[in-house]
């Protein structure tokens, strides 16, 4: 299964460690956003959609769905038109202004990934709210359910 950043909202304590880690790893711009609510917080980053609207909307084919590897960004084709950012239902794709505009989007720390390392947000999260193991996390949720309600 292609990995994606599984977020267990119920475990997040808004400690911002993921945000700080992401910001450090990616040169001062975090690709992950922590949205805080009254009694909950949600780390939000690229969902690695399997049929990604950003790739679907890109008129230049700069964002392409690579089988088994998610969406790939081909910088040389990008015209910075911003359609991808508009297409993303989650607002987690950003054109970073600068002399060479860049696309800021969580790539699950692909550079680390290639060295066999986990994304920094996953490693740093103290409560395991973030993981790449959706199957395991979903399984833990199932097991956390109270099994039998008492029937005497």
């Amino acid at each position: 299964m292609e990995p994606f950043l599984f977020v267990d909202f119920s475990r997040c304590i808004a400690c911002q460690a993921c945000w700080a880690a992401c910001r450090r790893e990616h040169g001062g711009v975090s690709r992950l956003h922590l949205l805080c609510f009254q009694e909950a917080a949600v780390p939000l980053a690229c969902r690695q959609c399997r049929k990604a609207p950003c790739a679907g909307f890109c008129p230049e084919g700069a964002l392409v769905q690579e089988e088994g590897r998610g969406v790939k960004f081909l910088e040389e084709r990008c015209t910075h038109c911003g359609l991808c950012a508009a297409a993303c239902p989650f607002g987690v794709l950003e054109i970073v202004p600068g002399p060479v505009p860049d696309l800021s989007r969580c790539d699950l720390c692909r550079r680390r990934w290639e060295e066999g390392l986990m994304p920094v947000c996953v490693l740093t999260c103290p409560t395991r709210a973030l993981s790449l193991d959706a199957g395991g996390a979903v399984g833990r949720r199932r097991r956390a359910q109270p099994a039998a309600f008492p029937v005497s």
Binding site: C15, Q16, A17, W19, A20, A21, R24, V120, L123, T124, C125, P126
Partner: peptide, 9 residues
């Protein structure tokens, strides 16, 4: 391996 925001910075 876990760190908080301060530890990361």
């Amino acid at each position: 391996g876990n760190l908080c925001a301060k530890g990361n910075a």
